[in-house]
């Protein structure tokens, strides 16, 4: 981590697999009221990565896909990085195929690897995920897997060569925030060197800020912005929260204490007051 510099509360760079990612808020591109509002929201958020899902049946028509052209135009002018994802896959083989199609279509080695194990909660399938991650890493992909907060799974994904892991906060689209706070804290403590991104389940800027304060390196979300009454303003709010949370992590949060402690020094007060007896 870079040293905080003089008076500027500059954010440290996020580096994944040797590449500087230009932002710690990452955004999806579905569910917006219109492509124009999506564009304005991206502008307001300044996301590091922008995710796009690929559908097997329609992937071959990407060249004249108007929606993709709009995203591509925005990527060209903004510097954000495209992150294709394998949304909707239920097995390693499906995800591997889709990742290869995405690489061919978009000319990018980045892939958000998503393998769903349970349809109702859209919970990742850890077993298929690991199989797919190993294979895709071997094929030269930069794999960012969407996973649960299980420590052993995250460790194995990192061992497999994933340059980062993306544990969920809560099921996709629920907006419930960090459901297993203790598990996520443990993950951060036990894997201090790993790049970890909270992906899915964030509904409020305060939840994104909480993730950043815990030391997660970035957050990825979609619904909370796209389905807000005013998506553009919500994108700004999330950007501010992510910045604030990262600054707080860099600055070093105070440790919680059991006992009240006056923040203004009370000069001349004898030490025996501390036991509560006058």
């Amino acid at each position: 981590m870079a040293e905080p510099t003089n008076s500027e509360p500059a954010l440290d760079n996020l580096v994944i697999d040797g590449e500087v990612i230009p932002g710690r808020l990452w955004l999806g591109t579905s569910l917006y009221p219109s492509p124009s509002i999506m564009g304005q929201s991206l502008q307001a958020a300044g996301p590091g990565f922008v995710t796009v899902s690929v559908r097997r049946q329609t992937a071959c028509q990407i060249e004249d896909n108007g929606h993709w052209q709009l995203i591509d135009d925005w990527l060209q002018q903004s510097g954000s990085i495209l992150l294709p994802n394998t949304a909707g896959c239920h097995s390693a083989s499906e995800a591997i195929l889709l990742a290869n199609m995405a690489r061919e279509l978009f000319g990018s080695r980045w892939i958000k690897l998503e393998v769903i194990g349970e349809d109702y909660s859209l919970q990742p399938d850890p077993f298929e995920l690991l199989v797919a991650a190993r294979e895709l890493v071997a094929q030269g992909f930069r794999v960012l897997p969407y996973c649960t907060e299980d420590l052993v799974l995250c460790q194995k994904l990192l061992d497999a060569g994933c340059p980062a892991v993306m544990p969920w906060g809560a099921p996709i689209g629920t907006g419930r925030g960090l459901q297993n706070l203790q598990g996520l804290k443990t993950l951060r403590e036990r894997l201090p060197e790993a790049v970890m991104v909270i992906d899915a389940g964030l509904g409020k800027p305060s939840q994104a800020m909480q993730a950043m304060e815990l030391g997660f390196d970035a957050v990825l979300l979609n619904t909370a912005v796209a389905r807000a009454l005013d998506p553009v303003q919500m994108a700004s709010a999330f950007a501010a929260a992510v910045n604030g949370g990262r600054q707080a992590w860099q600055a070093g949060l105070m440790i919680e204490r059991q006992q009240a402690q006056a923040s203004t020094p009370t000069l001349g007060l004898p030490f025996w007051h501390q036991d509560g007896k006058a």
Binding site: R55, Q57, T58, Q61, D64, N65, G66, H67, W68
Partner: peptide, 11 residues
Amino acid sequence: EIESDDRSPVS
């Protein structure tokens, strides 16, 4: 609602 101008039959 699928972002594509694909007119092929229903999936």
